[in-house]
Nucleic acid binder design. Structure first.
Length: 488
RNA sequence: GGCCCCUUCGUCUAGCGGCCUAGGAUGCCACCCUUUCAAGGUGGAGACACGGGUUCGAGUCCCGUAGGGGCUACCA
């Protein structure tokens, strides 16, 4: 089994393409075959330098390994279409010589007029006389090569996902195979390449279904054995309206949260590659057994293109947050630290690894994305000497006033001061007694301390936080808060 | 407009004629736990687009309608 992903180098890697590639890759791996990357750069106008690196970067990040491709090489290269032009030209010529295709000299202006009149290309050169052709040829008139589509009858295509699909031949135009600049169109190039690269299963998005009969006719004209075809459903916008692939970058969803679409945006948003892979494979396909969380290795054992749901799906991005948080919770603590460190550093913090290791267990159940570490726990890594007491609206808890808050802070100092161990359980026991003694609820006391030491309304648990800050620093912060509340 | 594809809770999905008084997940709501936020636990609301057939029996098969998506380039 040999499958491929054949993107055009038109910019950053889009999530929709990754999903299509993932299905092809899963299928190849399931059957112990090869997964090939081929770059389809036959549209010179749309090619963007650096695209291949971005595509490769996305696959590397996700761990989708490529067996053959422009970087990996392979026995069937080159894997970039612009380096295979002669091949396409040879076969275009062969099709013309054998009566399956013809040269068309219609100018852009003529074509525009035909389109305006409706109906598209009128096949005016399909049966042009030799004399006419020779005249144009002698003049060196530019031409394209068009495929002679049967005028009557129908073509039936077998699709692995939806069964047989029948098309009336008269509906199809005489498609251009070779452009006037000598470059092939997708229609010719992909067939020549899939044949010579021995691709066994062509997977591509459903938008290719309408040209499926054309491709079948070309394969037949060339006399080559056809591979199997699977037209994959596409991702729609989260609201179900329109293709997601039209979005060129992340955008705001209905809930106001940003919806990532580019591989780099998933990285930047703090999603884990394993979570993204799990997320993607659950759209249009499912693991079975009502199991939502599974490894790629497990998915490979079960994946089958035949099981892919033919319907397009709205992009269920909210589910990724949940999946990602599940992966973070299950992650190895040391590994989580490795992920968190660069994010904190990028946010401007100097990360002490020991401290990070102590904080990590507190963060593991609280992060939806690794990015969340910054607002949740950045304060652990800031320069403590620069810490300032938070404003009163953060310090003073609900149903409390400044006076009561100050009282709690003032009273906490000797209690904490007198502790032999500053381990969180010890603090908890002592502060619980203290709260009871002064007639406040645990939440009021603990919350006040939380705000004082972390400077935040939301933070990891108060006593665990103070344990990491240490007795001295914690007390210093409590005193600071006291001062800001009741300036001397 | 023409052609093609698709249609189960808001969303992702299970279901391949009787196991369905339609299952899971997410999201939402409630309660429990609880020092905030989470996590976790329990429970709840929530779907077979519609109309015809076929069949003893249809979410499952067929036709039509509607809705959605796509294609209709010397782009892929």
């Amino acid at each position: 089994m040999r499958t491929r992903y054949a993107p055009s180098p038109t910019g950053p890697q889009h999530i929709g393409g990754i999903r299509s590639a993932l299905f092809a890759w899963l299928y190849a791996r399931r059957h112990g075959g090869q997964f090939i990357l081929r770059i389809e750069d036959t549209d010179r106008k749309r090619s963007i330098p650096g695209s291949v690196e971005m595509i490769l970067g996305a696959f590397d990040w996700l761990g989708i390994d490529i067996d053959e491709g422009p970087r990996e090489g392979g026995a069937y290269g080159p894997y970039v279409q612009s380096e295979r032009l002669e091949l396409y030209q040879t076969w275009a010529k062969w099709l013309v010589e054998n009566g399956f295709a013809y040269k068309c000299y219609a100018t852009a202006q003529e074509l525009a007029e035909m389109r305006k009149a409706g109906g598209g290309y009128d096949r005016r050169y399909r049966d042009a006389s030799n004399a006419e052709i020779n005249k144009l040829e002698a003049r060196g008139a530019p031409y394209v090569v068009r495929f002679k589509m049967p005028l009557t009858g129908s073509t039936i295509g077998a699709d692995m996902i939806r069964g047989e699909v029948e098309f009336a031949n008269e509906q199809l135009q005489d498609a251009v195979l070779l452009k006037s600049d000598g470059y092939p169109t997708y229609h010719l190039a992909h067939i020549v390449d899939d044949h010579f690269m021995k691709i066994s299963h062509i997977t591509r998005a459903v938008e290719w279904l309408p040209s499926f009969p054309l491709h079948i006719r070309i394969w037949n004209a060339l006399g080559w054995a056809k591979p199997q075809f699977a037209h994959l459903p596409v991702l729609l916008n989260p609201n179900g309206k329109g293709k997601l692939s039209k979005r060129k970058e992340q955008f705001a969803g209905a809930d106001g949260k940003s919806v990532p679409v580019l591989a780099q945006e998933f990285i930047d948003a703090g999603y884990l590659p394993a979570a993204v892979l799990n997320f993607l494979s659950n759209i249009g396909w499912n693991f079975g057994d009502d199991k939502e969380i599974f490894t790629t290795a497990q998915a490979i054992k079960r994946f089958d293109l035949r099981d892919v749901n033919p319907a397009n799906s709205a992009y269920p991005i909210a589910k990724l947050d949940w999946l990602n948080s599940q992966y973070i919770q299950r992650a190895d603590a040391a590994q989580l630290c490795r992920l968190l460190k660069p994010i904190l550093e990028e946010a401007g913090y100097a990360v002490d690894e020991t401290r990070l290791a102590r904080a990590a267990p507190l963060l593991q159940v609280r992060l939806k994305s690794t990015r969340d570490v910054v607002p949740m726990a950045g304060f652990f890594f800031a320069d403590w000497a620069l810490f300032e007491a938070p404003p009163a609206d953060i310090l003073v808890q609900r149903k409390m006033d400044g006076e009561g808050t100050a009282g709690i802070l003032r009273g906490s100092i000797p209690v904490l001061q007198g502790l032999d161990s500053f381990e969180h359980d010890t603090q908890y026991a002592a502060m619980q007694d203290y709260a009871k003694a002064i007639g406040y609820k645990n939440g009021q006391v603990f919350g006040t301390l939380r705000a004082a030491v972390s400077g935040q309304k939301v933070s990891p648990p108060t006593f665990e936080t103070m344990e990491i800050l240490g007795k001295e620093e914690s007390l210093r912060r409590i005193k600071l808060a006291l001062q800001s509340l009741a300036p001397a």
